[in-house]
Simulated assay, not measured.
Amino acid sequence: MIVSRGTVDDISAVLAVDGLILRGGFRFTSQDTAPAGRSGMPARSILLVGQAGAAPWPHFLRWRERQPQAIADPLDTWARGVIGSVAEKFGARAVSPSDRPYLPFQQWAMRAEGLRPSPLGILMHPRYGLWHAYRGALLFEEAIAIPAPEASIHLCDACVDKPCLKSCPVDAYAADGFTHQACLAHVRGADGAPCRSGGCLDRNACPYGSDYRYPADVQAFHMASFAGL
C-alpha cells in the first residue's frame, strides 16, 4: 500500500492546528536497521515532525494552563500527545527524541532534509537558521512517496567570522566540542543571568534565520529546562 500525497497533506493540516510542521522524510532501505512500526513490523517510511521558529508556543501554553503545575517535561509531554494523536489517526507509530534507548533523530533529520550541523551542533537550516526543532516522528509500515530534499547551501560554509563561537563567556563551544559542565555552571551562576533570561549567547549571535528567532521567554524556558532551574 502507498500512503498517498493527499494523506501526507492531510497530516500536515492536522499538525498545523498546533503549530507543528512536517520536516521531510524518507523510506528505509534494506541497509537500514528500521525501527518497529505500529504493529511491531519494521517501519518502511518515516515522516519527521517539528517546528520552525516558535509557532507551537501559544498552543503549548494554552495546554499548559490546564495541566498540574508540577508536571515533568511539559513541552515533551505536550508534543508526545499531539504527535501521538496524529499517529493514531493515520495508522502510524509515534516516536520522540527523548525515547529510550535514543533513536538517531539527528541522522534521520539530516537524511530527510539534507541538513548539516552548525559549529554548535544544531542543524543549520537554509531558511530557519538555528531556530527550529524536531519534536517527533511518524513511523509507517507502508511505503510513502517522498521527494528527496533539494540541494541547498550550508550557510555555515559561507560564514567567515563564526560569531557563534565567540560570544559565550566561558567558551562552551570549544574546538573539542561542547563543554557541558562549564556551560551548566555558568548558566546556574551569578554571571549567567543574560543566558537564563535571553538564551544561549552563541546561538543568538548566529546571523541566519533571524526572522524565526525564538522570543526571549521561549529561550528562557528552554534554558531553565537545560539548567534544571
Score class of each variant (00 low, 15 high):
Ser4Cys: 13
Gly6Ile: 03
Thr7Pro: 01
Val8Leu: 08
Asp9Lys: 12
Ser12Gln: 04
Ala13Tyr: 13
Leu15Gln: 05
Asp18Trp: 00
Gly19Asn: 10
Gly19Lys: 09
Leu20Gly: 01
Leu22Phe: 12
Phe28Arg: 09
Gln31Trp: 14
Gln31Asn: 15
Asp32Pro: 11
Asp32Gly: 11
Thr33Ala: 11
Gly37Ala: 03
Gly40Arg: 03
Pro42Ala: 05
Pro42Cys: 01
Ala43Glu: 12
Leu47Met: 08
Leu47Ala: 04
His59Trp: 07
His59Asp: 02
Phe60Leu: 01
Arg62Gln: 15
Trp63Gln: 01
Pro68Met: 07
Ile71Ser: 02
Ile71Cys: 06
Ile71Glu: 01
Ala72Ile: 06
Pro74Val: 05
Pro74Trp: 02
Trp78Asn: 06
Ala79Asn: 08
Ala79Val: 05
Val82Asp: 08
Val82Asn: 04
Ile83Ser: 04
Ile83Pro: 04
Ser85Arg: 14
Ser85Tyr: 00
Ser85Ala: 11
Ala87Lys: 02
Glu88Phe: 01
Phe90Glu: 07
Phe90Gln: 10
Gly91Phe: 03
Ser96Asp: 08
Ser98Tyr: 06
Pro101Ala: 12
Leu103Val: 10
Pro104Lys: 01
Phe105Leu: 02
Gln106Ser: 13
Gln106Tyr: 15
Ala109Ser: 15
Arg111His: 07
Ala112Phe: 12
Glu113Thr: 07
Glu113Asp: 09
Gly114Tyr: 11
Arg116Asn: 02
Pro117Phe: 11
Pro117Ile: 09
Pro119Glu: 11
Leu123Asn: 05
His125Tyr: 03
His125Glu: 04
His125Leu: 04
His132Tyr: 14
Arg135Asp: 10
Arg135Val: 13
Gly136Ser: 06
Gly136Lys: 06
Ala137Pro: 05
Ala137Val: 04
Leu139Ser: 10
Phe140Val: 06
Glu141Gln: 09
Glu142Ala: 15
Pro149His: 08
Pro149Ser: 07
Pro149Met: 08
Ala151Asn: 05
Ser152Arg: 13
His154Asp: 10
Leu155Gln: 09
Asp157Cys: 07
Cys159Thr: 00
Asp161Ile: 04
Pro163Met: 05
Lys166Ser: 11
Ser167Cys: 11
Ser167Tyr: 07
Ser167Pro: 03
Pro169His: 10
Pro169Cys: 09
Pro169Trp: 09
Pro169Gly: 07
Tyr173Leu: 07
Ala174Ile: 02
Phe178Pro: 13
Phe178Ile: 11
Phe178Ser: 13
Thr179His: 12
Gln181Asp: 05
Ala182Ile: 01
Ala182Thr: 06
Cys183His: 14
Ala185Pro: 05
Ala185Ile: 08
His186Ser: 05
His186Ala: 07
His186Gln: 09
Val187Cys: 12
Val187Met: 11
Arg188Gln: 15
Arg188Asp: 09
Arg188His: 12
Asp191Trp: 02
Gly192Met: 14
Ala193Trp: 12
Pro194Leu: 03
Gly199Ala: 08
Arg203Trp: 14
Ala205Thr: 00
Cys206Leu: 04
Tyr208Asp: 00
Tyr208Gln: 00
Ser210Gln: 14
Ser210Leu: 14
Asp211Gly: 15
Tyr212Gln: 14
Tyr212Pro: 14
Tyr212Val: 15
Arg213Lys: 11
Arg213Met: 10
Pro215Met: 12
Ala216Arg: 00
Asp217Pro: 05
Val218Leu: 02
Ala220Ser: 12
His222Gly: 03
Ala224Val: 10
Ala227Trp: 09
Ala227His: 12
Ala227Gly: 08
